[in-house]
Nucleic acid binder design. Structure first.
Lengths: 339, 339
DNA sequence: TTGTACGCGTTATCAA
DNA sequence: TTGATAACGCGTACAA
């Protein structure tokens, strides 16, 4: 197998005995070329295995049809299923997607930005995961972009994500309707907007149920397993205990469950726990975690749809699309224990 | 902020009052240009914010400095940390990486192959995950490539992965040295090479300990949680029970643990379980899983290093690099129960 | 319906 | 040390 250079449009033209212009036309505007010629061209393409050189094409056209997806952490359980939604939608519109991994390193982010500005990608999806991506992006001249899962702080970039307030409210109401009145909120945050919104939803539900807010039942945390565990320890140093835990996300919930189990409690009999996100892991803990499911694939689909629209129309209006999450009932919530 | 077009080399040349050739030289071979001129050029670059257009560059050069990483499933727990190794090594050599997600869909794979053949990427990393990528790739003219985690069946593509035989042997010996003699192997496979090798390592360890092979203790499985659970059920329909379970991977081990726990057994007291891979989840199960850790980041690093080397030298010799995994002792293995 | 020729932004060759 | 210019592969206005 000789290592021949890939065929160019000129090779095709020569074989089909036409000019390169005709080849190009046969490909992009087939009706503008005679049927017989078209057939000869197609044959020649088949023979040579010709593929248009995307670089030359994009260089000439001034834009590519690739969309760059920037993610700080590909291991994030939210990532993979959202990606599916993004990809499928892009594909349906003739776009390809490429994934860039920043590892939360601003320098890498900047490199990908260069990738963009050199025209190798036309649109940008900011998959901020849990850490705001922000600073490096703000101020840069960006191509049409959309953020998912967490809005980009202080920018005009559109955003597609879950309705945190409504979701958290659903979770709290589930606990409430199971009979709980003493509910702790684990994972309060001063910095993360999404988590703050979840706290708001929690407050609203309690307020609607006429349960006075209890600051001793609100514990901070960064949304990690460790922070959930820690919160349990803190809580047990006080005099008053809740009957249920509402956690800002599933990781926190796993930590809470671990902490409670380690203390010898029997779940869900002794305490109820509810999470938020529905990560794969939620099914593996014991008891399986009742939680709020992020509509990940739908978020991806909508985000890409929005991006492609703005690619065509160039509207500078910022949009925010909030999707409604569902309650997933598994085994970690039951009625309050009688003590 | 006016939406000006990005600066080109010509803009820089005009401002610096030199020719574009000099600008190019000032960038790539600074010593071939007079100091004063160089300074003027650098200033002009700073003023314009010029970035070389990668597409024009690659078009001219005939090759890009991007490497495409093709993965069937980005959610695979093996993926993210391997990626880090790949990226870091690539970066160190001035290459960028892009990730393509095939979703196990041959059509998508083909599309990315087109991406390659159109020159947008120079090298290829086949992240076959657990499903052989194979068929579509074989026969295609491929750029320099390397596979990780699972060799590409029937091709000359180099491979970097873990030494499955040695790792499995380590696992079995750990069980043996804890005193186990009746050990079940869960996850035997007729199709997956890596899993077959793990079985071999298991057999070797038993053989070296002069324990006769027992076919009733070897159960098939596809390496999923479900298949681990199923294997437990099958085993309990027989008359003879093992004291320990060696699982082909962590997912299987989690299934086994779930199945055993569901039957009311107390682990690790009643049964010992060992896995393979060391996925993040391994720490969350109860008891935490003792397992064999894949040196993922190292695999990534070595694979990229090999690829870049072959990019420079074009050796067609197929290479296979096997890395030694470590035993990670956690809580799921203890001495055999006395029954 | 088809062909000629230009330009997209670079790098590299050759003269000056 | 510097500049003019060809070429990379493609799409398209313009001419035929």
């Amino acid at each position: 197998m000789p290592d021949t250079a890939p065929a160019t449009i000129e090779d095709v033209a020569r074989i089909a005995e036409v000019s390169i212009a005709t080849v190009s036309r046969a490909i992009h505007t087939p009706d503008k070329v005679a049927k017989s010629t078209r057939q000869r061209v197609n044959q020649a393409i088949a023979i040579t295995g010709y593929t248009t050189n995307a670089m030359a094409r994009s260089l000439r056209m001034g834009r590519s049809n690739m969309i760059l997806i920037l993610a700080p952490d590909i291991g994030d359980p939210n990532f993979s299923s959202t990606l599916i939604g993004l990809e499928n939608e892009a594909r349906a519109h003739g776009f390809g997607v490429l994934i860039g991994h920043t590892q939360n390193d601003p320098e890498r982010g900047l490199e990908y930005l260069k990738f963009l500005s050199s025209g190798q990608a036309t649109g940008l999806v900011l998959f901020t995961g849990h850490e705001p991506f922000g600073h490096q992006v703000v101020g840069q001249r960006l191509p049409p972009s959309v953020a998912v899962f967490e809005p980009v702080f202080g920018s005009k970039i559109s955003y597609v994500g879950v309705d945190d307030v409504a979701g958290a409210r659903k979770a709290a109401e589930h606990l409430l309707s199971a009979g709980h009145r003493a509910i702790a909120f684990i994972g309060d945050s001063k910095t993360r907007l999404g988590h703050q919104r979840r706290r708001q939803g929690f407050d609203k539900a309690l307020d609607a149920a006429r349960i006075p807010p209890n600051q001793r039942f609100v514990l901070e945390g960064e949304g990690t397993i460790e922070s959930g565990r820690l919160a349990v320890e803190q809580l047990f140093m006080r005099d008053q205990l809740p009957t249920a835990f509402m956690c800002v996300n599933d990781a926190t919930a796993v930590g809470v469950i671990n902490g409670l189990t380690a203390r010898g409690y029997d779940l869900p009999h002794d305490f109820s726990v509810i999470g938020f996100d529905d990560v794969p892991q939620a099914t593996y803990v014991n008891p399986a975690l009742t939680t709020i499911r992020q509509p990940r694939t739908a978020i991806g689909r909508q985000a890409m749809s929005l991006l492609i629209k703005s690619l065509a129309e160039r509207p500078t209006e910022r949009q925010e699309i909030l999707l409604m999450p569902d309650l997933i009932v598994r085994g970690s919530v039951t009625g309050p224990a009688k003590r």
